[in-house]
């Protein structure tokens, strides 16, 4: 049985901690997800429990995908959260997505923790948003309260952004625990950007 991570993926040290399914080993209910090629390690691992794929992917798509909140803002949240949670897979993968979403190289470096946020982000709202992400990701009440006070956003926005942070944290834990591999394409792009 082949491992979906074999072709073109850089394994984490020790490799993925579960077998990543491929088109040949994909269960009947989830075969469509493999029809267009490698669906990525989240789907390839989730496919081990096919009944989870159906409910999980639409949820992730609704929370992480396009919505009424601008993509730039969402990628700030996802990348920042992933970086502070120390998730290698999500940080590297979403560094590429963030760049493709229009964030600048220094902005991305700041979100990854390689540069001070204040120097890279001139917009006060975005700085407050990053502080909000940090506070929510770490989950410390005494940090969350002032971060919320500093974030100029209505309740609906706060709800969606909070769910976005929380969902990202969930995926960070999932990807880190299972040792999901970053794709070769993403690694190449990071090297190209010297990130």
């Amino acid at each position: 049985m082949r491992d979906a991570s074999e072709p073109g993926a850089l394994p984490t040290p020790g490799g993925p901690r579960v077998r990543l399914l491929d088109a040949d080993s994909a269960p009947l209910l989830v075969r469509d997800h493999f029809a267009g090629g490698d669906p990525g390690p989240i789907v390839a691992s989730l496919a081990q429990v096919p009944e989870l794929v159906g409910p999980t992917l639409p949820f992730l798509g609704a929370v992480l995908g396009p919505s009424w909140i601008p993509l730039r803002e969402k990628e700030i949240v996802i990348l920042r959260t992933s970086a502070v949670m120390g998730c290698r897979y999500c940080t590297d993968t979403h560094t590429v997505v963030a760049l493709d979403s229009g964030l600048g190289r220094d902005e991305v470096r700041a979100l990854r923790g390689d540069l001070p946020v204040a120097g890279a982000f001139s917009d006060a709202y975005e700085r407050a948003l990053i502080s909000w992400c940090d506070a929510v990701a770490f989950g410390i009440e005494s940090d969350i309260r002032p971060a919320r006070a500093a974030l100029d956003a209505d309740d609906a926005r706060v709800v969606e952004l909070t769910l976005l942070v929380a969902t990202t944290v969930m995926l960070n834990r999932y990807a880190t625990a299972l040792g999901l591999p970053v794709s070769v394409d993403a690694r190449a792009r990071l090297a190209e950007e010297a990130l």
Partner: peptide, 22 residues
């Protein structure tokens, strides 16, 4: 030594309605 998963319907078997639905 590895279970083939290509014809797996669901990991959940109880209640039986779950794999039946799959």
């Amino acid at each position: 030594g590895s279970l083939d998963t290509d014809l797996l319907l669901s990991r959940t078997v109880r209640p039986l309605q779950r794999p039946v639905d799959a």
